[in-house]
């Protein structure tokens, strides 16, 4: 187990390097000039050249990449061109805000998804299954930014029950776990939870229906086991696959959502990325993408490590 853990940990390094290289190349391939974010549009060519040199954009791309990577390894992700603040600070503040949102979206999306999926799989082709499948398909298919806007129109604009934007009355730095602040998170969390809820529902439904059609389930009933005991067996068999789907969806939630965070003006990583893209803030863009990609890698690693604990059949040596 320890060797497997170390192997998986070491394999993260080339993945992270590859991710860094790809994200560096992608942001440089995109048209546009990062200096437009930092200079008045009519700055002279000479002033632009001075600024380009000051930010190191006059160096060849491979040199820029090596310098950036070297700094990134020491935890220095550079300085945002647009804001002048350290990228690491900007990203960590945004990550903290996205984590709060992800926590609530997970608390809504995963339990509901698992419950719905289990019910639909158990009562396959019945009314319950049809209703739940309908909800799940809607969750996956309805564009979530549209859902967000509809929720804002209903609950913020028309009813005035919940705020439409922001991370608390005084901003995220004054975040507290009380109702005054939690009410700000309800609409974005529900919106963000819709897709993972739908995906988990559909996965668990298929799993449960499949497991229930296995011979061993029939055998369990034949032995005279009560339904709730059979259910326990089904759950144990479904858990590893469900966990890996939940893991992938958790990575999606942790990464924040550009559209949802923009609709709700939630100051997380998605909001940060969208600003960085529009401003061509290359260091901020690279830093944010790298951190988000590492989130996915680490989440997948944790899921891989957790699976054998749940299902001894896939225990590695």
């Amino acid at each position: 187990m320890l060797i497997y853990f170390l192997q998986r940990l070491v394999s993260v390094i080339p993945v992270a390097l590859g991710v860094s290289l790809i994200c560096f190349m992608l942001v440089h391939i995109a048209p546009g000039d990062p200096l437009t974010a930092v200079m008045p549009v009519d700055a002279t060519a000479e002033q632009q050249a001075e600024m380009r040199a000051a930010y190191g954009f006059d160096k060849p791309l491979p040199v820029q990449f090596v310098l950036w990577l070297g700094n990134a390894l020491t935890g220095d992700l550079g300085t945002s061109i647009a804001s002048g603040r350290p990228v690491a600070d900007e990203v960590m503040r945004a990550v903290g805000n996205s984590l709060i949102l992800a926590f609530f979206a997970s608390a809504i999306g995963f339990p509901l998804g698992i419950l719905f999926g289990f019910l639909a799989g158990t009562y396959k082709n019945g009314v319950v299954d049809k209703v739940i499948t309908g909800i799940a398909i809607a969750g996956v298919s309805v564009p979530n930014y549209w859902l967000g806007m509809v929720l804002v129109v209903i609950f913020s604009v028309s009813l005035g029950w919940l705020p439409s934007m922001g991370a608390g009355p005084g901003g995220s730095t004054e975040w507290a776990w009380d109702w005054e602040h939690l009410r700000f998170i309800i609409l974005p969390a529900i919106t963000l939870a819709a897709v993972p809820m739908g995906i988990v529902t559909r996965t668990v439904r298929a799993l449960v229906a499949d497991i229930r059609s296995n011979d061993f389930v029939t055998a369990l009933y034949a032995k005279g086991l009560m339904s709730r005991h059979v259910v326990a067996h089904v759950i144990r068999n479904a858990a590893p696959t469900a966990l890996s789907v939940v893991g992938i969806q958790l990575g999606y939630l942790l990464g924040g959502s550009i559209l949802i965070e923009t609709v709700f003006n939630w100051p997380g990583t998605g909001f940060l990325l969208s600003n960085a893209i529009f401003q061509r803030d290359l260091p901020l863009l690279q830093g944010t993408i790298l951190v988000l990609a590492l989130f996915f890698v680490v989440t997948n690693l944790l899921v891989d490590l957790a699976q054998p604990l749940i299902d001894p059949r896939i225990r590695r040596t």
Partner: peptide
């Protein structure tokens, strides 16, 4: 001062009294 770059979010914030 609140940065609200998205026009719909801006309008919703005004309509909801934020």
């Amino acid at each position: 001062l609140l940065p609200l770059p998205e026009p719909n979010a801006r309008s919703a914030a005004l309509l909801s009294g934020q």
